[in-house]
Amino acid sequence: MSKYFEIARIYMKAQLVWRADVVFNMIFTIARIVFAYLLWGVIFTGKSTVGGFTFYGMMSYYIVSSFLSQLEMSSGISGEISERIRNGTFSKYLIIPVNAEGYFAAMEAGIVLFYLIFDFLAAAAWIVIFRIQFVFSHDLISILCAVFMIFAGMFFMLQLNFYLGLLTLKYQGIGIFLMIKNNLVALITGTIVPLVLFPEIMVEVMKFLPFYYVTYLPSMLLTGYNQEEAVLGAAVISLWCLVMQVVIKMTWKKYIRKFDGVGI
C-alpha cells in the first residue's frame, strides 16, 4: 500500500510545477458558475421555481456540481493509456512492481487532493461574491451517502477511463470515440443541466446507469433534494464499480497479450 501512497505523493508534488494549471482550473470552475448564474438569472426572471428548483437552489446545485466535475480528472487516463499503447511505452506499467490500475488510481488521488482546496476556494469565493444563499442539506445520512458516492463515482470514472484506454489494444485508434464519450458524459452526469429537467422516462432510465450517481445525485443530495434516493444510490454505484472491475480484469487478461511493446 505504501508504494501507492508514494505515487499519490509524487503526483501531488508534481502539480506544484504546473502552477498555471491550478489558476486555469479555478478559472474554469468560476466560469461555469458565472455562466450558470447569467443563464439561470434570465430564465428565472418572473418565476420563483423551475423544475422544482428555486434560483438559489439551482445556483447551489451548479456550485456543487461544478466543484465535483472539476475534481473528476480521470478523462486524461484513457488518452494516456491509448497513447502509450500506440507508441509502445505502456511497458512502463508492466515493468514497475505495481498494479497498472492501482497506479492510475493513486495518481488520480494525488492530483485530486491537490486541486481539492483550490476548487473549494473558487466555489466558496463565488458564494460570497454573488451573495448566493447557499442551500445545503441538514440530513446526515444524505450527506454521508453523497460523500460516499462522490468517491465511488470518481473511482467508477477512473475504472471506465482505464477500461476505454485498454480498448486501444483491440481497436488501435479510439481518440474520436473518447471525444464523443466526453461530450456524452457531460450531459448524462448532469453537469450541464440538472437531469430532473429532462422527461421523467429519461431520468428513470438514467437511474439504472452509473453516471446518474457520479455528479448529479451527490450534488442533489448535498443541496437537499432527492434524499429518498441516497442509500439506494450508494448501493447502485458500488455495484457498478464491482461490475466494472470484473470487466477490466477480463479485458486485461484477454488483450494484454497483444501488447508487444513496440507500438502500433
Partner: peptide, 9 residues
Amino acid sequence: IFKAIYANV
C-alpha cells in the same frame, strides 16, 4: 439541453 429547459419555461 435546451429542449429540456424549454420543457420547463
